[in-house]
């Protein structure tokens, strides 16, 4: 493994996603991409699933990308990346073809929650099983934002979306969020992690690690969305941070070593594990977001908030167990 990336390294490296794109002010997706690309080691090829990121960065004849980039369709970014990675390997094998001149290429796939939890899950699972050497970054804004905020398998329970509206009878989404990173980890791939832009160094180092391992790697980054989560743009980082502080999104890594999936808590969550009183109530996270406003107005729904709290606690305990902390 190479030296640990430092803040200085990151500051020195130019942005590979240029300004001028059309992501909303305060959108975490742009920050995620810029940070992630700081961790690349040299030549990069990106594949992007259909979604906000793709649409907002490439409207023809403009493009914000300083690196080669391809968008194929919504559900197939993992397959597209498989093809790129296989092409590179084939060319290296015979030292022939346009990419043969590179020592290595970082192949990275970006996809939203819809393109990952739902419609793209089959292609993702297939690519992981086949063992392609690529990094898949899920920017999880917890709904189909590009089509106007519809629920996905990544939408948390009781969140309002346009297809899980908070009605008189049903208070938002009925089901819990799919534990996507754990599901991916069960594929026994070399590296899986969760991350938050509120802890940029942690995220960037994870990206570097994901690129360095041989074989597939997967990083799940929560991507607060001002439009869909209904909060003012300046709160993005605060919300991203609260997700970790409330243990809504515990930060961890899972490495598949010697026939075992070894889970490790990352520093921000490790602190909470050591000092449980640091764990903030989920209400602090929920109340900042308009998508949960029906839990607070017209009447406070303590019953529903405590259901969410129970789920958070359950998931947190589960991760603590996996990480050998319980």
């Amino acid at each position: 493994m190479a030296e640990k990336l430092t803040l200085k390294d990151i500051a020195k490296k130019p942005d590979l996603l240029m300004s001028g794109h059309r992501l909303c002010a305060g959108c975490a997706a742009g920050t995620i991409v810029r940070l992630a690309l700081k961790a690349t080691r040299g030549p990069v090829i990106l594949a992007n699933a259909t979604g906000c990121l793709e649409v907002a960065t490439t409207i023809f004849p403009y493009s914000s990308w300083k690196v080669p980039w391809i968008h194929n369709a919504f559900e197939n970014v993992a397959a597209t990346a498989s093809g790129i990675e296989a092409a590179f390997r084939a060319m290296k094998k015979v030292n022939k073809g346009p990419l043969a001149k590179y020592e290595h290429i970082d192949v990275i796939a970006f996809a939203g929650d819809g393109g990952t939890y739902d419609i793209g899950f089959q292609a993702l699972s297939g690519a992981l099983e086949r063992g392609h050497d690529f990094l898949y970054i899920l920017y999880d804004n917890e709904a189909y934002m590009n089509t106007g905020i519809q629920r996905s398998g990544g939408t948390p329970r009781f969140a309002w979306t346009t297809t899980s509206p908070a009605g008189k009878v049903i208070p938002g989404k009925r089901k819990w969020k799919k534990p996507i990173a754990r599901v991916v980890a069960e594929h026994e791939i070399p590296y899986v992690a969760t991350a938050s832009i509120a802890y940029p160094m942690d995220f960037v180092r994870k990206v570097r690690k994901g690129l360095e391992v041989e074989g597939p790697a997967f990083i799940h980054v929560l991507s607060p969305c001002t439009r869909g989560w209904r909060y003012p743009p300046e709160k993005t980082i605060k919300i991203a941070k609260l997700a970790v502080e409330t243990c809504f999104l515990p930060l961890w890594e899972a490495e598949f070593k010697d026939g075992e999936i070894v889970y490790t808590l990352s520093a921000p969550s490790e602190r909470i594990a050591r000092k449980p009183e640091l764990k903030k109530p989920i209400e602090e996270y929920l109340k900042l977001q308009g998508r949960f406003s029906h839990l607070f107005r017209p009447k406070k729904r303590d019953d529903l908030i405590s259901e969410i709290q129970q789920w958070v606690d359950y998931e947190w305990r589960l991760i603590l167990k996996r990480c050998g902390k319980l």
Binding site: I70, N72, E75, T80, S82, A86
Partner: peptide, 23 residues
Amino acid sequence: EFISVESEHSALSACVGAAAAGA
């Protein structure tokens, strides 16, 4: 490089990625 994909949708998707990469 033979990619034994998990569906035809992915078969052609992988070909798109590969061909775009110059293969």
